[in-house]
Amino acid sequence: MKVAVVKYNAGNIYSVIHALQRMGVEPVLTDNAEALRKADRVLFPGQGEASTAMHYLRERGLDEVIRRLTQPVLGICIGQQLMCRHSEEGDVDCLGIFDAQVKRFCPERHEDKVPHMGWNQLETPTSLLFDGFHGGEYVYFVHSYYVPLCSETIASTQYIIPFSAALHKDNFYATQFHPEKSGGVGELILRNFLRL
């Protein structure tokens, strides 16, 4: 199976490559349109700032390439946010794959710290991505912006408010959390993705 990871100006891309390698998969890191189109699976991971990342993708035509992919695609963290319609971070229009607006967390009490960082639980996971899950599984999050609950939500998490921990539409999947840093639970999600 050919697995491609989108190469762009976001941080922490290597942790997903390591995670795939631990599972015996040797992914290619590429920004080449042809290589991305021909891969059996595409991962779109990363950490960073939305508007900077979006500008980078647009300048290289990668926005159109990602939008038109037809094989299973998995966005992670900033990848999920970039797959939405618009982000409050840098007030930027994004890829529009998911019909959702990315918002910044607004603390309601002093204990509500932003970023939301650490292990939190998946609620009502409903997708082949979460095959074998019952809800309550802990996964690792680091983010200050979130996707509100919407029709494309396939798992939610509670932090200040309930938000989308994961999204799915057609061949596109995305998680706000980092499966590559979520121990055995995260590995199961990556395996499910490769099996889709």
Partner: peptide, 8 residues
Amino acid sequence: VAAELSIP
């Protein structure tokens, strides 16, 4: 550590 472990 980065290559072998799956927690932060």
